[in-house]
Amino acid sequence: MNLFIEYSLVGLAAGGMYALMALGFVLVFKGTGVFNFAQGELMMLGAYVFLTVNQLAGLHWSIALAATAVFALAAGAFVERAILRALAGQPLLSVVMATVGLGLVLKGAVGLIWGQEQRTLPGLLPRAPVFIGEFLIPGNAFWSFVISMAVVGACLAWFRFTRSGVAMRAAASSQVNAYAVGINVPRISALTWGLAAAVGGFAGVLLAAINNLTPHLGDLALSVLAVLIVGGLDSLAGVIVGGLVIGWLQSMTGAYLGGQYREVMPFVVVLAVLLVRPHGLFGRKEIERI
């Protein structure tokens, strides 16, 4: 029983990280209807900006984090303006392919600027294990979980309670109707992309602090595909539940069935969810009154 609880806690902690990684995808998809394949590379880029400000320029981590957020906001807004708006009115597939291309360009550019070697962000998260009752959780897992949940929760509250958050959902629901109620739709789209890039930047910094940082860090992002499908591509609450469920299941599978099944289990769950609820557990189905 103790083993079960301990593995559960570790799994849930990892799930919090999945939720944060998935959040960036959900923001863009919810806000603009595009699946952004470059989200992982935006994550990686954020981590490199943090590395540069924190380690190379030697500034405090809080300043580095703020710089990362500002840079990511600007980068996301730039991507929206330079690439997405140029493709307005084109088939969705072209837009999605453009994000794939953007990801490749970012990966190459970062490799050119910062090099291919592994970097580390030591000492960012406290390593001292945290005890919950008698159960032990590794420090970095615990703190990355706390930070992830705080960011996801903040986004959730922002979407629900602020005028600009509601405007973003309105623009996602219908651009024409959003215009008609006075919403500056282009600005809101740029804001959505900027926010997704900033959230991705935070996720990238946390990931780099736990693992290592290379230009291939972004590849990890696609591993949250299972989270997105279980939770629903356009649901913030789904991101939390999906992340926790997948993290917990992976941990359980590793503990009881053996490590070789860890990576397979999420996709078994995905299959089951898709059979029962094609929109994901929390995904939106169009409301149609007849």
Partner: peptide, 14 residues
């Protein structure tokens, strides 16, 4: 042309 997946109040906020 409401934002059909949002609540009444959220439509007003929008």
């Amino acid at each position: 042309q409401l934002f059909t997946d949002m609540t009444v109040e959220e439509n007003l906020i929008a």
